[in-house]
Structures are given as structure tokens and as C-alpha cells.
Design a protein around this nucleic acid. Structure first.
Length: 463
DNA sequence: GACACATTATG
DNA sequence: ATAATGTGT
């Protein structure tokens, strides 16, 4: 008899509830990962993310080998098809217990329920763990025992929970046998899909190094630098977090252990709270993973046909420099600075008045850190359709944002070379009082008019 | 029920 | 300075 750890969105050996539990059993432990390309495509996984995940799955296989755990790659087109391969694998290896960490998308939950039913019928025990957030999902509730729909009170309660509970890392898994030889474990054949150049290095120890580097060198100034896309102010850990190479707990505990309780660290810890917040929202409201708005009344909005405006936005040819620079960064690198995610999302959903779902999908199709909870949460915030959303009348002005957060136009010059020669003032809005540089489009919408129109269309929902 | 708060914009 | 909304304590 043996235990099986089924890895999914938790491609790490450290601080992993399911792995730690399996290793404590005293029985031999095996591992598996199911490659489900068609399902990933249906979920709009980008080429960058697929590559990242497969490379990290290989790295995980090597790490597990040191613990005496052989990992097998199984293959199924979809989640539905993965039931059969998992069941077959369990029988082949005489598995008595299957351990996995919960995921909160609707399809993932449906799959996990079906897996539990199927394996239980074969007398295989299924053990699930609430491992994905700092405070276990579903535990942070209002005084009325209801889920929070506003971030600030959620974060206050979340911090109280941390004070009371002093969360710790799951114990490092102990070796369950002699090191597994390369012949006994499994490796996916490279090369993987064509994708942007990797943003971060591959592997769990590289992730730990990146976390340490951020906390030691850059976290103290995080509050002051994080909003400036030309600076290296953010942690850049999102690809690891989105794919479970790092956990939020590891980030929080490492941040606490730096001892410096500066504003920078506190601001960053708040971002970990945002992640927990949106995972909780996804958990409490399944409609969010079914292409539905959190605010049902916004389903009645009559979005514009995407057409040429949507193509211009995707390609970074809107005539708004900060938007174009951001969209080109996304397409080229598979990543976008968070301030720019808000600016470009607001521009698509309010100024172009194009359905936020189309933008959400485009982000997923390009981001290496595309993570349903955070991506959907961010888009619904920008589009004023979500929890704690930006009030509909509070529309970012992308030019003002550009002047504030890229004051010298450095970020714009880097990604929109057509504008490189413009001075620091004109670069934010080249069409204003001058000739637009050759090869660069005029703005595809009037910012003022489109803002007014968007507010009016939201206002009309209330009549 | 008063109050704090929310990743602002425009005149 | 003022616009205008809703959650949670």
C-alpha cells in the first residue's frame, strides 16, 4: 500500500499541506501530476504559463526524488478525462490514500468532487487540504458570519486572525525512502511551447532566493516604488505564487521574520491579503468562475462591439502611450506591472466600453502569472462589476495616471520607441497641441467624452 | 446611526 | 472644494 500526492496548483515541496501529511503516514509515498492541455486551453492558459508549469513540474520531480518520492506524469485532455487516468494510476500502484490541496475554480471543484466519489468507491481514501491561503479559505467572516465583499474590513479581520493564530509553515517533508533514481522518476520532454523569455528563474530554490532578495533589498522601499512601472519596485514573485511554487504563507512568514516592520513590508503584506481576499471571493461565489459578474445588475450593460478598438488595445495601438506601452509589455514578456493592469483594464472597460470578460481572457492568454482569482478580481474591480469595485463614477484618466506614475516617460520610451524623442511633458499625450510622431496613432477615443458616456451608462442601470 | 473608508477626476 | 456610493463596525 502507498500514499499518493496529487500535485496541481502547488508545485513545491516546502510548506505543502498535502505532501507533509502524506510523508507523515509512514507508508511509501508516490506523486503524480496530470497534464491536461485541452483543459488549460479552455481556461485560457498562456503559452508562457504552460511552459512555466511544465518546467516547474520537472523541477518538482527532481526535488521529490531526493525525498524518495517518484513522480509520474499522467496525461488527459480534460479534467473529466483525468478521472480515469487517476483511478487507473491508483490501482496500478496499490494506492490507499490520495492527498491534494484544494483549488477554488468551479471546474476544479467539480473535478475534485468527482474524484472523491470515484476513488471512495474503490476504497481509496481522499484527503483534501485548505492550503492555498494564509488563513484557511472560508474562515475570515464578518460578525454576521458572512463573507466580506469589501477588502478593507476583510484585511483588518485577516490581520487579527494572524495575530491570534501565528500561522507557521507546514513541516518540511521527511524522506520516505532512499533517493529515487532518474530511471524511476518521470520527466516531461522539453522543449515546451514557444513562449516569451522567462521572467524568473526556474525552480523552487530560485523562488526562495527571489523572495529573500526582495525582502532584503527592495521590500523596505516597496511602498514608495511599487507604483512606478519604470522602477523595479514590485516583488516579481507573482509567477511563483500563481502556480504554487511559493505559498502566500511562505511570503507572509518570511516578511514577518525580516524583523523590519516598516511601511514597505506592511504594504506588501497587504498585497498578500488581496490575494487571500480574492481567493475567498472565488470560493464563496462560484458564478465568478462562470463568466458572471459579482454585481448581477451589471449584466444588463450594453457593451460595445469589440471590433477594431479591441484589436488596437490588444496590440498596443490605442494612441494612449501608457496603455500602449503596457499592452506591449504584456505581449512581449507575459507580465504587466500591477498599476498598468488597472490602467489598461479601466481603459478597456470604461473608455472603450468593451466587455471586461474579453480583457480578462486576453490577460489570461498572455500572462505567465494568470491566476483566476486575482485576474478576475482585478478586472471586475476595474469594470465596477465586482466586489469592492471602483465606484463607477471613479474612472482613471490614463494620461493623468501616466504623468503621475511614469513622470519622466521612461517606461513609455522603453516600450513605444516611436515616442522616444518626445519630451517628458508631451510623451503622455502626444496628440495634444502638436503633430503626432509618424507611425503612432491618434487616440482611438476621446477620453473625456467616453468617460462621461460610461458613467451615464452605469447610471442608467439604476433606472 | 454616525463614522471611516475606498488603488479619483474635474472645476 | 466637490462630485457621489455602499459596506461594515
Amino acid at each position: 500500500m502507498a500514499e499518493l500526492v496529487w500535485f496541481r496548483n502547488d508545485l513545491r515541496t516546502a510548506d505543502n499541506a498535502a505532501l507533509t501529511a502524506a510523508c507523515k503516514s509512514g507508508r511509501p509515498v508516490r506523486a503524480c501530476f496530470i497534464v491536461t492541455h485541452a483543459q488549460w486551453q479552455e481556461h485560457d492558459w498562456s503559452a508562457a504559463r504552460v511552459k512555466f508549469v511544465l518546467e516547474h513540474a520537472n523541477a518538482l520531480s527532481k526535488q521529490l526524488a531526493k525525498l524518495g518520492i517518484a513522480l509520474t506524469f499522467l496525461h488527459a485532455d480534460t479534467f473529466a478525462a483525468s478521472l480515469d487516468v487517476l483511478e487507473q494510476h491508483c490501482q496500478q500502484h496499490n494506492i490507499s490514500h490520495v492527498h491534494f490541496n484544494e483549488e477554488y475554480g468551479a471546474n476544479e471543484r467539480k473535478r475534485d468532487k468527482q474524484v472523491r466519489d470515484r476513488l471512495t468507491k474503490r476504497d481509496i481514501a481522499v484527503k483534501k487540504y485548505r492550503d492555498q491561503t494564509v488563513a484557511p479559505v472560508g474562515q475570515i467572516l464578518t460578525q454576521k458570519d458572512e463573507p466580506y465583499s469589501v477588502f478593507t474590513p476583510f484585511a483588518r479581520r485577516w490581520r487579527v486572525w494572524i495575530e491570534e493564530t501565528h500561522p507557521t509553515l507546514y513541516a518540511a517533508p521527511s524522506a520516505t525512502g532512499p533517493e529515487v533514481t532518474p530511471e524511476q522518476t518521470d520527466t516531461l520532454p522539453a522543449p515546451f511551447k514557444d513562449a516569451p523569455e522567462p521572467l524568473v528563474e526556474t525552480g523552487e530554490s530560485a523562488a526562495h532566493d527571489a523572495l529573500e532578495e526582495f525582502l532584503a533589498e527592495r521590500a523596505a522601499s516597496y511602498k514608495d516604488t511599487r507604483d512606478f512601472p519604470a522602477l523595479d519596485g514590485t516583488s516579481q514573485l507573482s509567477p511563483y505564487l500563481a502556480n504554487g511554487v511559493l505559498s502566500g504563507r511562505q511570503c507572509l512568514i518570511a516578511a514577518q521574520q525580516t524583523g523590519s516592520s516598516g511601511e514597505g513590508i506592511e504594504t506588501w503584506i497587504n498585497e498578500i491579503a488581496w490575494r487571500d481576499f480574492y481567493i475567498n471571493i472565488l470560493y464563496h461565489y462560484p458564478r465568478l468562475s462562470m463568466h458572471r459578474a459579482f454585481k448581477p445588475e451589471t449584466e444588463a450593460l450594453n457593451w460595445n462591439e469589440p471590433g477594431a478598438h479591441f484589436e488596437a488595445w490588444k496590440e498596443g495601438r490605442t494612441g494612449i502611450p501608457i496603455v500602449d506601452a503596457a499592452m506591449r509589455q504584456l505581449k512581449t514578456t507575459g507580465w504587466m506591472h500591477n498599476r498598468l493592469r488597472m490602467i489598461t483594464a479601466m481603459f478597456l472597460s470604461k473608455n472603450l466600453f468593451i466587455d471586461w470578460r474579453l480583457g480578462e481572457a486576453w490577460f489570461m492568454q498572455n500572462l505567465v502569472d494568470g491566476f483566476l482569482a486575482s485576474n478576475n478580481g482585478g478586472w471586475q474591480w476595474s469594470a465596477s462589476t465586482g466586489t469592492d469595485a471602483a465606484p463607477y463614477f471613479r474612472v482613471f484618466n490614463p494620461v493623468t495616471q501616466s504623468e503621475r506614475f511614469d513622470p519622466k516617460g521612461e517606461f513609455i520610451r522603453n516600450w513605444v520607441p516611436e515616442l522616444a524623442k518626445l519630451d517628458n511633458k508631451r510623451i503622455h499625450d502626444p496628440s495634444k497641441g502638436g503633430v503626432v510622431p509618424k507611425g503612432y496613432p491618434r487616440p482611438i477615443v476621446d477620453l473625456k467624452e467616453s468617460r462621461k458616456e460610461a458613467i451615464a451608462r452605469f447610471q442608467a442601470l439604476k433606472d
